[in-house]
Amino acid sequence: MANLINILDLSVEEIDRLMDLADDIMADPEKYNESCKHKILATLFFEPSTRTRLSFESAMLSLGGEVLGFSEAASSSSAKGESVADTITVVSGYSDIIAMRHPKEGAPVIGAEHALVPIINAGDGGHYHPTQTLADLLTIRHELGRMSGLKIGVCGDLKFGRTVHSLIEAMSRYDDNEFYLISPEELKLPGFVKNEYIIDKNIPYKETGSLEDCIGELDILYMTRVQRERFFNEEDYLRLRDCFILTEEKMKDAREDMIVMHPLPRVNEIQTAVDKDKRACYFKQTVYGKYMRMALILKLLEVEV
């Protein structure tokens, strides 16, 4: 049975086909609005994430399906000490497909080992968040019209920022892309990601601590939030939080056709004044995300329309 745990579970061709399907849904949503009738999506969120959960639920409802689930561990049996394996085994008897988010890395692998239905990883700690990456990829294809030959700047928390790791993994599979790794010293991209997906593939890259120095060269600026929950130490969080903020002023140096992306939620790393800039794509990303989740649900449920 197919699951989606990591973006690399999908080949480039599979991702392209998913994006084609998402395009088709966007072009004619009515064609799909009963395609998952009588199917149930369970959204098991052991850690709160309103945006991702609502995106999944909206996707399933737009396909004519139904949803059930919980939005935090406190309202699930895990609060009583039930294992992930047992929860998933039980819920897979009540649903046709499961989207799960869990604070522990690798929890969806256990889910996939025990589920009787497809499992979608909706985020496992600081590890993977493949449907965010699918949303990112569709945004890039729609907004820029290509997946290759791009100068991609990733900025902020590159150490714990799982969306950045997955984006680099995914975009390193397309030709002629270059990466600009923009972060403070403490939040640099981990060596294993850099080695495996950039250096070993001979992909050009530049590491810098200054957004201003490279913003003019970029096709994509992918901003990330410095997340409180990834730090053990409040002092470190407060010190690094404000390091890399995108302002109207900095946008003046950016190219006219550059796009600004962000996995959201934003705290203060992009000034709200930037929102009205036509290059700001982060709210569109959430819409693309819903369509990609619709396409993914159809694929994993093997529904042909």
Binding site: S83, V84, A85, H102, P103, K104, E105, G106, A107, V109, I110, D124, G125, G126, H127
Partner: peptide
């Protein structure tokens, strides 16, 4: 942060 740190009998 790994699930192996909390999941029973894994």
């Amino acid at each position: 942060r790994c699930i192996t740190s909390t999941e029973q009998e894994i």
